[in-house]
Simulated scan of single mutants.
Amino acid sequence: MATNTVFDVQKVRADFPILSMEVYGKPLIYLDNAASAQKPRQVMNAMNEAMTSGYANVHRGLHYLSNKATDDFEVAREDVRRFLNAPSLEEVIFTGGATDALNLVAQCYGADHIGEGDEIILSEMEHHSNIVPWHYLREHKGAVIKWVRVNDDGSFDMEDYKNLLGPKTKFVALTQMSNALGTITPMKEIIRLAHEHDAPVLVDGCQGAVHLETDVQDLDCDFY
């Protein structure tokens, strides 16, 4: 039997201390979460606890605080693995953020597997963090960047993507959900088609992981 669930906006707002402030005499309304999301009280409390009672080198010491920090670190890794349904803990790598992670893939995998004349497929709706690392490979390795068009309604041009795939396609790096447009790309089909051309796929999941139920095994992506 279906049940009606009421979304309690005020209860959610109460988790974010910054939303209790006023701007120009009115309660703060913050809509720029796609760029920098505000932190709920639970996150700030956990960060404060780590700094005040659990800070030490991870995997680098045998004393109490180091062991505690290491245990907490690995618990967080398992939380991420379960959240994304990654197949193993070894596939969950912590970085300084998405920009760092995208550059890591481009410089480690890309530098070894992409060469002169090889094609990388991006879309016109990508964040700069998913553009600049591939430009570096274009300049230093002679790779070619192909751009998937965005339709007038902001949707991903699937037919254009299909036409760009070919024997020279060596990598596909696309957003799961645009931070600027909110467009949700048909990622599972995108990945299936890329794999038919033996091209690995990197999914920029910065927005998708928050707004979509994401299962990386079901997507069958190579990097997320």
Rank of each mutant, 00 (worst) to 15 (best):
M1R: 11
A2V: 10
N4D: 06
V9R: 15
A14W: 00
F16D: 03
F16G: 04
S20H: 11
V23S: 07
G25H: 06
D32A: 15
D32M: 13
N33A: 09
A37G: 08
R41S: 10
Q42F: 06
A46E: 06
M51A: 15
S53A: 11
G54S: 09
H63G: 02
H63Q: 11
N67D: 03
A69D: 00
A69S: 13
E74G: 00
E78H: 07
R82P: 02
F83H: 11
N85F: 04
E91I: 02
F94W: 07
T95Q: 08
L102T: 06
L104I: 01
L104M: 12
C108S: 12
A111R: 15
I114P: 02
E119Y: 05
E119I: 09
I120V: 14
I121K: 01
I121Q: 01
E124A: 15
W134Q: 09
H135I: 11
Y136S: 08
Y136A: 12
V144I: 15
N151M: 15
G154R: 14
D160S: 14
L164I: 09
L164V: 08
L165V: 07
G166E: 07
G166R: 13
T169L: 11
K170S: 04
V172Y: 02
L174H: 05
G182L: 11
T185D: 05
P186F: 03
M187W: 00
K188H: 03
L193V: 03
A194Y: 01
E196T: 05
H197K: 07
D198P: 00
A199H: 02
A199E: 02
P200N: 08
D204T: 08
G205S: 12
C206A: 11
Q207K: 06
G208F: 02
A209C: 08
T214C: 12
V216Y: 01
V216P: 01
L219Q: 03
D220I: 11
D222E: 08
F223V: 05
